[in-house]
Design a protein around this nucleic acid. Structure first.
Lengths: 204, 204
DNA sequence: GGGAAAAGTTTCCTATAGGAGAAAAATGAT
DNA sequence: ATCATTTTTCTCCTATAGGAAACTTTTCCC
């Protein structure tokens, strides 16, 4: 790792890229060889056909999602490994900052997310500030869930955090919460105005 | 989906499953709805057919890996989210919160750290609020370094973040920074008063 | 409510995924 | 080298994925 003495803005590293047909076969073959297994063995473990596996490894077919999923499990491939990152997945010697309000905005129906430090694409934590639009609690209907952990800090306003297995948690500015984001969760503003929260999300 | 109102202590969530045909469709539909997009729009973005997308969302087909991959990109879905696997994180189904000012205090010469959500001992991210005592910049002499990544958000006051390889970064309330904590780093208050920052640290 | 436009589903058809077994390589023992 | 055995690829066939368009449902005006 060499010191990066550059301007302060991060350089745009490339983000995550799913393996195209090209690389997918190679990766699977490599993984199999690495474990010293035969087509037969892996195919059996994944409950798919020998020939199918052969074709996949040789990129002679565009396998179904289901088949690939079973293969990954059979080969003990962590999913993230399958989705090669084109850039290195570490931020060795790097830094990136975002000035107030200058994050990358991404709006959904109920949230307005401002992604922070997005130049640093290989970071493991995902920090963002969400403006949660005021709305009636009764409107809360959809959980989000994604494997990992999440930390939330209320910057302003009042919110209610709903998570599976727990009763709703009323939160005010300055309060914070940490939870398994694999649980269904969602957040609504319970004050008259929009609320702002800082979220830091960690995958896996 | 409706909020589950239970006792506050976390019960062990059942293992998260890889998205079998069942859940995959729902996840995609949820993601699409959340973005307020129509089948047409998403299908266009992913370069697939409307009907195909409809079938996928309704679990009426076992889509190919390639199709799913394109969908994820179109929907900005992190891949790991899709491949939720049963290997649960240690805080599986758990939650912990800290009310403003109620964190566990830990004082050093220049900082007053308030650790957040400490009940949840197995969490991977370490969130804490630091009050950085006002002092002269010249006093800054020692760098801290520990393998991992760190995110910092300025809550109030003005601070200067020093990191190896970069020039000092002046920060005000609302600014944030993300950096490799393996680089030497340190933070001082550059305003007359103490500054408060929220830190989230991740090992390894 | 009624009518139009938008969103979503189903139908139909072609291309192909996926599996069983045959053919071909690769490996290995003597 | 020769032959047996294992491993991989290829051939063939059926089931179905995926797209175009017809059809149905929902949304939203007036």
């Amino acid at each position: 790792m060499e010191p990066v003495l550059t301007e302060d803005e991060g350089m745009s590293a490339e983000g995550l890229e799913a393996p195209d047909g090209e690389t997918l076969g190679r990766m699977i073959r490599d993984a199999r060889k690495d474990k010293g297994m035969t087509l037969e063995e892996v195919a059996r473990a994944a409950a798919i056909g020998r020939s199918t596996l052969s074709k996949i490894e040789n990129n002679q077919t565009r396998a179904s999602f289901d088949i690939i999923r079973r293969l990954m499990q059979a080969l003990d491939l962590e999913t993230p490994q399958l989705f090669v990152q084109s850039g290195k997945s570490d931020i060795s010697g790097r830094r990136d900052f975002t000035r107030k309000g200058q994050g990358e905005h991404q709006e959904t129906r109920t949230y307005d997310h401002e992604l922070l430090c997005t130049e640093l694409t290989s970071k493991r934590m995902l920090p963002y500030i969400s403006t949660i639009k005021a709305r009636d609690v009764s409107e809360f209907d959809t959980w989000v869930r994604h494997r990992g952990e999440e930390f939330m800090f209320v910057l302003s306003g009042e919110v209610t955090l709903y998570t599976e297995h727990y009763r709703p948690l009323q939160m005010k500015a300055g309060d914070s919460v940490y939870y398994d984001s694999g649980m269904g969760h969602g957040c609504v503003s319970t004050s008259a105005e929009d609320a702002r929260v800082l979220w830091v999300s960690l995958d896996g």
